[in-house]
C-alpha cells in the first residue's frame, strides 16, 4: 500500500518542476583562517579552512521527503533502530507525507546524524565539519567575521533565549549572510560531520574528575573565547548527542569540496 502511494508521489514530484521547488544551492566559501572556540592546539586557536561549498539553507521537509521517497530504507518505520531513535521524523503525518504539523519550507528536524549523513551522500555531498560550520557562522550580513561586534552576539543570544517556545519558522525568512547563507542562526541547530570529535564533555563537566585514561593521546580540548557563549552552547549540545538521536530543534545542511562537477 505504502509502495503504491510512494510511487504516485514520486511520479507527481518528477512531473513537476522540481528544480524551482527544491533549489537549495551550494554557495562557495573561500579559503581562510579564523579563531575557533575549539582550538586545535593549546596555545594557538587559529584554524585554517580550505575553500568549500555549503548549502544556502538548512535542508527542508520537502527536500527530505524527496529523499525518503527515493530511499525507502530511510522512511520512518523502515529506518532501523541502530540509526535512528523512536522520534525520527515524528512530526510528519506519516512516513511519506508531511501533514499539517510540518511545512514544506521548514527545516527538517527529528533527523539523526546517520540520516543526515545519508541524505548528504545522496546529494553527492557530505556534512560540513565543525570548523567549516563555525567559520560560516562567524559571518553577519556584511562581515566574514562579525563575532567581535557586541550587537551581533546579542542578537544571536536573544534567539537562543527564545527558541523552542513556539514552532520553527520557514527557511529564507531571515537575512542573507556575507556568503549568501540563510538561517545559520535563528532557526535550528545543525549536525556537523565530526560532532563526535568533541571530547569536552567528559573533561569539563566532571569537574576535577576527568579520567585521563579515557582519552588516548595528547591533552584534552580546552574551550577558548568564553564570550562566544552562543557558539559554545552549540558545542555543548552537539557533544551530548549520540549519532542516532533526533531532536525537535536539530536539522542540518550539506557541504561539499570546491571543484565539485555536476
Amino acid at each position: 500500500m505504502h509502495l503504491i502511494i510512494a510511487l504516485l508521489a514520486l511520479a507527481l514530484l518528477s512531473a513537476g518542476d522540481i528544480r524551482s521547488s527544491f533549489a537549495n544551492e551550494f554557495v562557495p566559501i573561500p579559503t581562510g583562517e579564523f579563531r575557533s572556540v575549539i582550538p586545535e592546539e593549546e596555545d594557538d586557536n587559529l584554524v585554517a579552512v580550505v575553500a568549500f561549498e555549503i548549502q544556502e539553507t538548512p535542508v527542508t521537509n520537502a527536500e527530505f521527503l524527496r529523499f525518503v521517497l527515493h530511499n525507502p530504507q530511510w522512511q520512518r518505520g523502515n529506518a532501523v533502530a541502530l540509526f535512528v531513535d523512536d522520534q525520527y521524523l515524528s512530526t510528519w503525518a506519516n512516513p511519506i507525507s508531511l501533514g499539517p504539523e510540518s511545512d514544506q519550507k521548514q527545516p527538517v528536524t527529528q533527523v539523526s546524524w546517520f540520516a543526515a549523513n545519508a541524505y548528504c551522500g545522496w546529494q553527492e555531498a557530505r556534512l560540513p565539519t565543525w570548523y567549516e560550520w563555525e567559520y560560516v557562522a562567524a559571518a553577519n550580513e556584511e562581515l566574514a567575521d562579525a563575532r567581535a561586534l557586541p550587537e551581533w552576539r546579542q542578537s544571536i543570544l536573544s534567539w537562543y533565549s527564545q527558541s523552542g517556545s513556539d514552532g520553527i519558522g520557514e527557511v529564507r525568512r531571515g537575512p542573507k549572510n556575507h556568503y549568501r547563507n540563510y538561517d545559520i542562526h535563528g532557526l535550528v541547530w545543525e549536525w556537523v560531520d565530526d560532532f563526535s570529535a568533541f571530547l569536552v564533555s567528559a573533561d569539563n563537566r566532571e569537574q576535577g574528575g576527568a579520567d585521563e585514561l579515557q582519552f588516548c593521546g595528547a591533552g584534552a580540548i580546552t574551550m577558548e573565547q568564553k564570550e562566544n557563549y552562543a557558539v559554545l552552547m552549540r558545542v555543548a549540545m552537539l557533544s551530548a548527542l549520540e549519532a542516532r538521536y533526533t531532536t525537535r530543534n536539530l536539522g542540518f545542511r550539506c557541504a561539499r569540496d570546491t571543484g565539485y562537477q555536476q
Binding site: E40, E41, L82, W113, F114, N117, D193, D194, S196, A197, F198, L199, L213, Q214, F215, C216, G217, A218, A220, I221, E242, A243, R244
Partner: peptide, 24 residues
C-alpha cells in the same frame, strides 16, 4: 570512520601532530 564511531558511541579527534584523542 565517523559512521562506525557513531554506532559504538566512540568520540575521536585528530590532533595537529598526527595523534588522536579518543574514547577508550
Amino acid at each position: 570512520l565517523r559512521m562506525i564511531a557513531g554506532v559504538f558511541g566512540i568520540k575521536y579527534k585528530k590532533l595537529p601532530g598526527g595523534e588522536f584523542n579518543h574514547t577508550t
